[in-house]
């Protein structure tokens, strides 16, 4: 009797534990094995696309890239100082011997952001147009957003082993949520009277979407793109754990060797890239803002 109390009352009963984790592992593994050819094809195409992006970035002379950032920052903010500051920050990254690593990181970020926008925007539209899709997808999005980012790493590795391909998958899953959410939010919260006007003048749903909702939601959608970029940036760094080369890998290596200085520099480089990306996309979002119709 006392043994029973000990096993079933004082402690959570061991007999009730089930091995959900194990069976998921098995299922994913089985899936990976069964679809080895498909996954392999995906992997090689991903590698070649990201390779192409990286090749393009590397093909650009560093001075052109720096000047392009300076010019873009000036164009968006109309302040020379901002542009020059960004340029100097990039030069600092180069001086730290991290130029190539930065381009590696950027190429994965670019690829995953493009994927996020291409998938996330239509998903956001779907969420807006169909209440049913909304009911199904909302909890999924909530889960995706609250799940610790590490969790995405393991299945990505199981499917695509290590390297940039699983990094791209994990990054895209992690970073797509704000794109979907902000798109749907922007489309839903268009001024009610404006939507009534669109209907009253005989717009079809599609016309309302294209001619009124999307243009009106543009600033919100751009804010979504901005958030997606920032999240992708953060995740790509984490993806060093599954073998994604770049700035994150430099930190990881330095950490393993307990070299504070060596890990600090790529850390700063990440901050620099993130800040520049953030400010530039925010400026783009701001420019797309329609002046509010203050009556």
């Amino acid at each position: 009797m006392s043994k029973w109390i000990e096993e079933y009352i004082l402690q959570f009963p061991k007999a009730w534990e089930f091995r959900l984790g194990d069976s998921v592992d098995a299922a994913v593994k089985e899936f990976a094995v069964r679809n080895r050819d498909t996954l392999g094809a995906i992997k090689s195409s991903v590698i070649s696309v990201i390779g192409a992006i990286r090749g393009t970035l590397e093909g650009i002379p560093w001075i052109v890239l720096v000047l392009a950032v300076v010019a873009l920052a000036w164009y968006l903010t109309r302040r020379w100082r901002v542009g020059v500051a960004y340029g100097l920050m990039l030069v600092f990254v180069g001086c730290s011997g991290l130029w190539g690593h930065m381009l590696q990181t950027l190429s994965v970020v670019i690829a995953s952001v493009v994927l996020c926008v291409l998938l996330g925007f239509p998903l956001g539209v779907l969420l807006t147009m169909s209440p049913r899709a909304n009911r199904v997808l909302r909890p999924v999005l909530d889960t995706m957003q609250t799940m610790p980012s590490w969790v995405y790493l393991v299945p990505a590795v199981l499917l695509f082993s290590t390297g940039t391909t699983p990094a791209l998958l994990a990054t895209t899953i992690y970073a797509i949520v704000p794109m979907v959410r902000m798109t749907s939010h922007g489309l839903l919260y268009v001024d009610a009277e404006m939507l009534e006007a669109a209907r009253a003048f005989g717009s079809t749903r599609m016309q309302t979407l294209i001619k009124v909702q999307i243009p009106q939601a543009k600033p919100t959608i751009m804010a979504g793109v901005n958030q997606t970029i920032m999240m992708a940036m953060a995740m790509v760094v984490t993806c060093a754990l599954i073998g994604a080369n770049g700035l994150g890998m430099e930190i990881l290596l330095a950490t393993n060797q307990v070299q504070v200085g060596k890990s600090l520099l790529p850390g700063i480089a990440i901050v620099i890239v993130a800040v520049i990306l953030d400010r530039l996309t925010q400026a783009v979002a701001k420019r797309s803002e329609v002046q509010p119709d203050g009556a």
Partner: peptide
């Protein structure tokens, strides 16, 4: 049938 709105309902973009 067309309509005119209280707060104008104009497309600000």
């Amino acid at each position: 049938v067309s309509m005119v709105f209280q707060n104008f309902g104009l497309f600000t973009h």
